[in-house]
Structure formats: structure tokens, C-alpha cells
Design a protein around this nucleic acid. Structure first.
Lengths: 339, 339
DNA sequence: TTCAAATGCGCAATCGTTTGTTCAAATCTA
DNA sequence: TAGATTTGAACAAACGATTGCGCATTTGAA
């Protein structure tokens, strides 16, 4: 932008020093005993000239950028774009900008983007890590950058996190299937090493074990539709077909549905299907799919609270919980039948 | 971040001036005749200290931020989050950061967020305007800020834009319904004043007119599911029920489906349904919904090209087209029956 | 009347870079 | 060998703000 007006212009027009202008505009008049008269003049001229401080200059001087980095694995996944949306709103309300980046589920990209964010002097970081290592995140955290992991996290580090209680959710949903008489319950998983996947499969297995059942099947490699499709395809060719499928994400569930249809099977008559996450469209499928709804709003808000705590009162002893899991809920729909 | 290393540290450690360090690190060694030896020393130390330039300082000095503002109406709408995802990737590849904001379909918010972006000295702007006025956008544009509207735009200004040919898409899809024998075709619209909505309703009406039919019904106020639901509800109570519904967005279509189900009607046997946009889930509904697929990728890419043209070769005469509409395609699925 | 305190504001350094200009030393030219 | 040219690098001024400190005046108290 060309003709942007600076504090100097105001100084010139109002015949006071830039120091005074700065103080008036920053509400420090009282503290520095600037007369009402001077204040009025400065403010009037600032308004007239439509002055807005150059944030770059402010940030440099203040050594603070009022911006938060947000790294998510994929904007085109509704779960993450919802989180991004909420985080964005909440932080903006509090005067922070959000610099959003999408790592594309790639750890190397994530590392590079974190560096770029650090170059931009972000004041804080919210990240859903894509990879299985966390050196870069831990390093930033230990360097004093307020950081919180969201949805995915690592147990071996002290970096704060907020996530759904994935174990509990999976446990309950699997139990639900068992209660309906299912014994051959297949679990279609996503990226193996990420915490939600780990916890969900664990919950699934434990529920089976607690009911005296053995794990029937765990397969899959990532959270894509394609993966759900091929895995289901494979399953349906077995002699001992599953009576129920537990997809560990919406996208996997979509793939499962496609395969099930190709086989001419009807949900839930021939096979039951449940999923994690709760995309809006699950309600509109025929039949509507029973799923676990993650408390996205709460996750986002708690993350921000933790972040702002660190950001704004660095001094106060850390009394608050910094590793939070939140209970999910099951929404019972029409995709599960008794056997 | 505390102990971040600056150019001064390198200067000190390498015993050369900060000027020289800066030049070496910026690849200006040749131009300023820095000896190979000095170069090696400086580079070695920079690497060793893991130096990364403070972008805030660079930006201030260079009067350039290498960041682009992106304003969209709603991140939780898959259409926009897809756009955001692509824009983000493409710009990042070219060395720009994206500062994303979500106006929540509110014009006032949009205006405020634009101001905040300008404060941050963005080099360019991509915006999907939410409101019906465009003073703020035009002003920024005329002030020299490379700007492009995406998806939504205004005809009365010279601000460049890239959008789907909404008129054409609606015209063709309506014609498709007419060819299948439908005459009572209802149109469920979204926010009235935005260009896509205007063009879509126009296309719908013109197609009817061209086939000697009169407009049956246009109703609705916004792109929400709720709106689709209440409008459809209203329609289904009429004596002369529509034989087909044209929803102007996916979300509206979802609402329509909900209402249709409540009435115990079957798509497409009892009523046909088509929609604009092409969310992934349309394929998985029962039946799959015929829809118009917007060339999201192309829209995003063309916008960026226009933006970068302005950004990087401001001098070159504007030879390129700056107002672009792109033809959409229809994906025929199973939600339309002959009458 | 005198001096301390209060009032009102400006100087100049600083944040971390980039960059136009200058300048000494080394090398070349004739 | 003297002057011109090249080489290699540093000085210092920006960019647009914030902020510690200082310094006239004016006011108040004794």
C-alpha cells in the first residue's frame, strides 16, 4: 500500500513530537501527563488522516506479533476445518491473528511450516501433528513458545494437549455393538502412529476383551475414503464376514459404504456400520450412521484457554491442567441392527 | 521466543560487519565483491548458530510482508475450505504466507478483518465478499493492493474476479430437469444479493422461459440447511407440489432432503432433487444427488495467477483477462426421474 | 521570595534488517 | 613510481513504531 499515513504525519500535522502522538494513541496520556488539549488535537488528526498503526513496526518494537500459528493436517477434512474455524474466531475476538497452515498430513511439510511461522515471530502455536516425531514441536515449546497440541499429541513430552478421549469413545461404541449381539466386529483404522488412532484401536480391543471376545480384525493405513473402500472390500470377501464395521473416521466410513453397496448389501440388515467423527452428512445418509461426536467446540476452546494462559500471564504458576481429554458422546442412529 | 539469534550475533562471531553478513546471506556477495573466504565463514557460522532472519524486521525494512490475506465467508463450508486449502498451498509454494480469516458471512466483520489485514501490511488480497457493498474492497484495490474476488464479485467495479459461470450451470441443470418432463420446478435460493445466487436464479428462470414455462417458485434467504428445510416444508404443503427441487447449495439440499423424508416421500420417485456445489457426500446419499460441480481447483489457481501477475510484475501492461468465469460441469446421479 | 514539586512534552535509543554510499588497501597501468 | 582502478568491506541511515530518561516551565508551599 502506498500512501499509508504514519505517526510522523500526525506528528507533523499536530506540531507535537512522535513520542507524544504515540502516547496519546496508546492511551498513555494520563501516565505521561499529556494535556487534554493536546490529546484532542492528536486524536482528531489521527482520525481525520485515518491513521492505523503499521503492525509490522509495532511488532518489531514490541517483540510480539499478536499472531498465533495454527497447523492442521488438512483443511479439506471437515473435522479440522471446523477446529480452524473456531480457533480463528476465538483468537480474533481476543486480538490475535491466526496464521493457518495445512501440512497435508506430511511431517516434513509440518516442520518447514513451523519454521516459517517461527520466522514470523508467532506468539503461540496450536498444532495437530501429522507425524510420529515431535522434536520440532518440543523444541519450540522448550524455547518458550506457548504451544498446545490439539486432537493429536504425544505422551512422552510435556507439551500440553487437548483431545477427545478416544479410548473411551471407541470402548463405548464397541460395547454398543457387542450389546447388540455382534461378535465379528471389524475395525478400520487410519494412520497408525497418531494418538487418536492408537487410542481408538485400544478402546476397541479392550471392549472386546472385556466381553470375552477376541479381536476380529484391525486393518487399514490411513484416514482416506479409498482406504475404507479397499479394506471393506477385502473384508467382504471373507467367509466369516463381519457383522459390523467400526470405521475410525468419517472418510473411512464413506469408503466402507461404497464397498458395501457394491456387494449389494444393506445397512444395517446385512451389516452394521458405525464411525468416529460426526460430519454433518451422517444424518442424511440412508440409513443415518451411528457415530461418535467429538466435542470440537470444547476442544478448540480449551486449547485456546491454555494458550492464552501461557500467553498473558506467563508469571503465574501453572496451576491449571495442561493435558486434557474430553469425553465424546455417541449419537445413535439407524446403522446398527441386532443380530 | 527468547534466544533467537540475530544478524548481529553472526557479525560478532565472524568478525565482519552486519552489512556484510546480510549481503552474504542474501546472495549479494558477487555484487558487493565479498571474498569467498568471508562468505564461507559467515555461512558456516550462520548455519552453526541456526540463524533465521526475523521476518518482522525484514518486512519492515523491505516494506513488503510476503503475506496474502484471504477472506472467506465460512470455513465450515466445504466449498470455501477447499478453496482455502488450495490457495494456501499454491501461495506457500511461491513463498507467500496466507493469513486466513472467516467473516462469518457478515459484511461488517469482513470490513474489520480487512482493516486488520491491511494493518499487517498484506501484499495482496483474495476475498469472497459476504455483503452487498464493496467500498472497502474497491478502496484497497485502488490504493494499489493487488486484489481478486473469488466466487463472489461485483460487476460495477474494476476489481478482478474469478468465478464459476453460475448462470450457465443453473441454466443447463434446469434444462436437464425440463428435458425429463418437469414443469413444476422449485428453486431454493441462498443469500439474495450475492452474485452466484443472482446468476443461478437468473439461469433457472431463463431456462424455464426458453422452454415456454413460467417460474414456479423461488424462495429462501440463505445458504443454510435450516433454510432448505423450512422452504421445502412450505413447498410440500402446497396443492400443486413441485415435481423437482433445485437447491442452490449443498447445505440447502440437505435441508430439503430432511423435509422430504419427513413427508415420507422418496427421491426421485415422488420428487426429484438437484443441487449446486458438489460436496463429497452427495455420492453417498441414497439416492446419490445430481449436482453441478464447480471447478474449485481452477478457480483457485486462476485467482492466484492474477494476483501474482499484479504482485510480481506491476510494471507490465495488463494484457491478461482480469474478469474470469469458468464453466461448471453437471454430474448426473440418481436423484432425477422422468415424469 | 525561594526552592521543591508538579506539569507537559521531547530526545534519542531501540527492535533486526537492508542498502546507498564511502573508504582504505591492494593491484594495475603507463 | 605516481595516479587510476579494482577489491573488500564498513558506516550510517533508513523502515515505523515504543519507551527510558531528561528538561524546561509552571505551580505551590513555606
Amino acid at each position: 500500500m502506498k500512501n499509508s499515513v504514519t505517526i510522523k504525519d500526525i506528528s507533523r500535522a499536530s506540531q507535537v513530537s512522535i513520542t507524544t502522538v504515540s502516547r496519546v494513541l496508546n492511551g498513555l496520556s494520563r501516565q505521561y501527563r499529556i494535556s487534554e488539549e493536546t490529546q484532542d488535537i492528536v486524536k482528531a488528526i489521527a482520525r481525520e488522516l485515518n491513521y492505523r498503526p503499521n503492525q509490522t513496526a509495532v511488532n518489531l518494537r514490541r517483540q510480539k506479533s499478536y499472531s498465533i500459528g495454527l497447523i492442521i493436517p488438512s483443511l479439506s477434512n471437515p473435522f479440522f476445518s471446523n477446529i480452524a474455524s473456531i480457533v480463528n474466531h476465538e483468537l480474533r475476538k481476543r486480538g490475535y491473528s491466526v496464521i493457518l497452515t495445512d501440512s497435508g498430513e506430511d511431517e516434513q511439510t509440518e516442520i518447514e511450516e513451523l519454521d516459517l511461522l517461527l520466522d514470523r515471530q508467532i506468539d503461540g502455536l496450536i498444532v495437530t501433528p501429522s507425524g510420529s516425531s515431535y522434536d520440532h514441536i518440543e523444541k519450540a515449546y522448550n524455547n518458550g513458545l506457548p504451544t498446545v497440541c490439539i486432537d493429536r499429541y504425544f505422551e512422552a513430552t510435556s507439551v500440553p494437549y487437548v483431545a477427545t478421549d478416544n479410548y473411551q469413545g471407541a470402548y463405548e461404541l464397541t460395547t454398543h455393538l457387542i450389546n447388540y449381539g455382534h461378535t465379528r466386529i471389524a475395525c478400520l483404522q487410519g494412520v497408525h502412529h497418531v494418538m487418536p488412532n492408537v487410542q481408538r484401536t485400544k478402546g476397541y480391543q479392550q471392549a472386546l476383551a472385556d466381553h470375552g471376545l477376541t479381536t476380529y480384525y484391525i486393518g487399514g493405513t490411513n484416514f482416506s475414503e479409498e482406504n475404507g473402500y479397499t479394506e471393506t472390500h477385502r473384508l467382504l470377501q471373507r467367509k466369516d464376514r463381519p457383522t459390523a464395521i467400526f470405521a475410525l473416521s468419517d472418510t473411512i466410513a464413506l469408503g466402507a459404504i461404497r464397498a458395501i453397496r457394491e456387494y449389494g448389501l444393506i445397512i444395517p440388515k446385512d451389516i452394521s456400520l458405525v464411525t468416529f467423527d460426526n460430519a454433518i452428512y451422517l444424518d442424511y445418509m440412508a440409513p443415518a450412521i451411528t457415530s461418535i461426536v467429538q466435542p470440537v467446540n470444547e476442544i478448540a476452546r480449551v486449547s485456546i484457554r491454555i494458550l492464552l494462559d501461557k500467553l498473558e500471564k506467563m508469571d503465574i504458576p501453572e496451576f491449571n491442567e495442561e493435558k486434557v481429554t474430553i469425553e465424546p458422546k455417541i449419537v445413535y442412529r439407524d446403522s446398527v441392527a441386532k443380530v
